[in-house]
Design a protein around this nucleic acid. Sequence first.
DNA 1: GTAGGGTTAG
Length: 593
Amino acid sequence: MLREDVFPDNTTFSVVLRACTAVPAARAGEGFHCQIFKLGFEFDLFSQTGLLDFYAKVGDLSSAKRLFAEMPDRDVVAHNVMIAALGKFGYASDARKLFDEMPDRNSASYNSMISIYCKLGDIHSAGLIFYRNPVKDVVSWNAMIDGYCKLDDLTKAWELFDRMGSAKNSITWNTMISGYVQHGEFGRAISIFQQMQEQNVKPTEITMVSLLSACAHLGALDIGKWIHAYIRRQNLRTDVVLGNALIDMYSKCGSIEAALDVFHGLPMKNIFCWNSIIVGLGMHGYGDDAINAFVEMEKEGIKPDGVTFVGLLSGCSHSGLVSEGRDYFSQMSGVYGVNPGIEHYGCMVDLLGRAGFLEEALELVKTMRMKPNSVVWGSLLRACRIYKDTKISEQVTQHLLELDPHDGGNYVFLSNIYASVNRWEDVELCRRLMSERGVHKTPGCSSIEVGNIVHEFVAGDTSHPQFTQINTFLDEISWELRGLGHEPDTDSVLHDIEEEEKESAVRYHSERIAVAFGIMSTPPGKSIRVVKNLRTCDDCHATLKLISKLFMRVIIVRDKNRFHHFRDGSCSCKDYCYAFVPTQFIARIQYDE
DNA sequence: GTAGGGTTAG
């Protein structure tokens, strides 16, 4: 490292130290410190501060504290570094003490304190510091806006954002965009990006990551593609984070091919990238390819983690790869050093249940080390419904309602099971329990992208400008569907509980409205892509199959659980959990009760 | 020195 004939000065020291801090290379930096020290080197204030920062960044707070105490004179920057270090390790009151004792402060001193208080969740103290700061700069505002975003007060965040006027920089915009993304307001995030462009603020890689995440949630493939093209046009650097965001966007928007293209084109892949592609392949029903990717990942020397196994096991489940899933599950902790969590047991129960091994699945639930949660019981219940096992489903039901008395989805599913065997008193009981326990229903929401605009249809909301035409069109569709032999499930609607609320003005669920709008607004033959926040109901599932045949369209619906590719009257989910039978036939079906 | 980003079972 050091050559005898070249004597370093403070600048050399600072430069090398900065490199060690960035890597971070604790050993190298420390060794370097010692070597220089032995040479009898006089550190200047600048180098001392650099060293302080170095120790704080590599996680050695005690060395940082010692250094700070030994420093003969300490300027504002040295104080700031120490305050930030104390804050990072959770010593907020020590940081505050230092802040109060400082002879003079600059904006960064105030800003450090703001971010420390924000990380503690103490937005009130952060605000006091913010308003006391006589030299507020863009960082002060950004820190406060981020604080409000992290504390779920988007109104306050927006207020500050708005008050900044033209003083915003790209980080301000990024903070606001990611704030909206993190709170599920994806359309809003995209529209803020449009404003950002109007104001000629140059987006960064981080802007793109947030936007891609918004697209992934919305299923907005066209906007996602546009962002990808924009990234290339602007020569933004596709690092592992941006690469991962692209993979996830394409995969969640239903285009696993494009996700694979991005994946293979990445010069560097980390565990996130591998996990995203494994999860994506599994989600799209390519269990074999998910396994191949896993094997490939091992060859590259990347150690799988819990997320990898969720992807792998759920992939096996969706593709019916029972023995493969069993093998990987049993090797998880012994071979790969990953202890199975509840989510992995959940995957296994789903895998076994889906394949019809109901007793084995039940046995696994009973013998698992942790208390089974509602997802685990719910998977088993779905399997019971498919294999018409009412005996096990009675047991499962008890647990499910005890565990999760406030999840409306559970009641709906249960009620559907009862409805399918004509047990209307129990259906009524579900409905009564729901209202007694004050279980609220999540409003259904479906989105579709037409002409680079995301149209959202929320249950009960009639505000879309074309709402009347869409409803008329849907009425016509149901008329034509009758010609194809589809009898609307009117009888069970009287008893059935819907997962989403239907207002009187809205006769159809949101995904059906979105699909109808898509057919009306796009040229014949174009695929329709819809994303829904809840599970698609039986009646809509059956109807969409018929619509795909009637209008000769591929309809891709991503609901809460999975992708449904409707094509020529059938669905890629092979009707798993959609044992829809028009009510008038239910009585003729024999159930072994 | 201080502000912004990614993968997870029904």
